[in-house]
């Protein structure tokens, strides 16, 4: 694929990717087409261990498709995905999960007939390749994870009795219960109010603090700026910009992609007037 088409910005010295550190996850020219449309078009991306990387972009930019490619839900039409140096392209979702890549779904997909605790236990039962766990140990892990995401008090409730924010927490809890090294979060903050976003941010920080790399898709800019070390912007399946969140969000191409050319021009004009920027 066109390896050099999306040049990486020079990395900051204090970022985890600096120096000789090998990336934990590496995407090389990843392409996914639906019919004639390339939803993801030659994306190159490196995620370092312990990083919190945000992916933003307008609707239809290919963010969720990219996540589906990484987690094995979609087969690639081109390029390669490497996990700790080894290719995982074409691997079945359950094998990707057992390697230590957990994910959530944008539209929550709880196991409806189960309680919150049982939902989390599924992740604990199946999510890791280490010694086979029995249901008993899995429930212990489930309890710990539910406490971590703040659902401990509602562990015994059926999913139907959970609020939307709680179901989003459960979605994260289930993924965390697989004990991932990398967690892919697909818009876990969407649809939450400000207080709930703060709680969700705390939750992500808590999970990250246990040593988990986080790659999150988000529309809420506050989240990107608030916790991400780095952000990449996708547009029409390509990487438009990459770098520190504050810098990326001020990038004119990004503003244009989100808000349209006219708005970008006006913003530039007003920026020139008062001499900033």
């Amino acid at each position: 694929m066109n390896e050099s088409s999306s040049p990486h910005r020079p990395l900051q010295a204090d970022l985890p990717l600096a120096g000789e550190v090998k990336p934990q996850l590496e995407l090389l020219g990843v392409t996914k087409r639906f019919g004639g449309v390339a939803a993801v078009d030659g994306v190159n991306l490196r995620v370092g261990k312990g990083e919190i990387l945000g992916i933003i972009g307008p609707n239809g930019a290919g963010k969720t498709t990219l996540l589906n490619c990484i987690s094995g839900v979609f087969r690639l039409d081109g390029g390669d995905i490497r996990w700790e140096g080894a290719s995982i392209a074409g691997m079945a979702p359950h094998r990707v999960a057992r390697l230590g890549i957990g994910r959530t779904f944008q539209i929550v997909r709880p196991f409806g007939s189960m309680t919150a605790r049982e939902n989390a236990a599924i992740g604990a039962l199946f999510g890791s390749s280490d010694a086979r766990k029995g249901p008993k140990e899995a429930f212990e892990i489930a309890d710990q994870v539910l406490e971590l995401v703040g659902l401990k008090a509602k562990a015994g409730r059926p999913v139907a009795a959970l609020t939307i924010p709680d179901r989003k927490r459960l979605e994260v809890a289930r993924a965390v219960a697989t004990r991932p090294h990398l967690l892919l979060l697909d818009e876990v903050m969407a649809g939450l109010n400000n207080v709930e976003i703060d709680e969700a941010l705390d939750m992500v920080r808590t999970v990250h603090a246990t040593g988990v790399t986080v790659l999150l898709i988000e529309h809420v800019m506050r989240v990107i700026v608030g916790i991400c070390d780095r952000a990449i912007v996708l547009e029409s399946g390509r990487v438009l910009a990459e770098g520190e969140p504050e810098v990326v969000l001020r990038d004119e191409r990004v503003i244009q992609a989100y808000l349209g050319e006219r708005y970008a021009k006006r913003l530039r004009a007003s920026g020139d007037e008062d001499g900033t920027n």
């Binding site: 094995g72 359950h94 999960a97 779904f105 196991f111 199946f126 999510g127």
Partner: peptide, 27 residues
């Protein structure tokens, strides 16, 4: 219904994609 196997089957019934990304070998 008490085994790991059964929990996997119920997870498949409730949501097959979610079961797969949590590590259930659905096939």
């Amino acid at each position: 219904l008490r085994s790991r196997f059964g929990y996997g089957l119920i997870a498949i019934r409730e949501n097959e994609e979610a079961a797969a990304v949590l590590g259930v070998n659905t096939t």
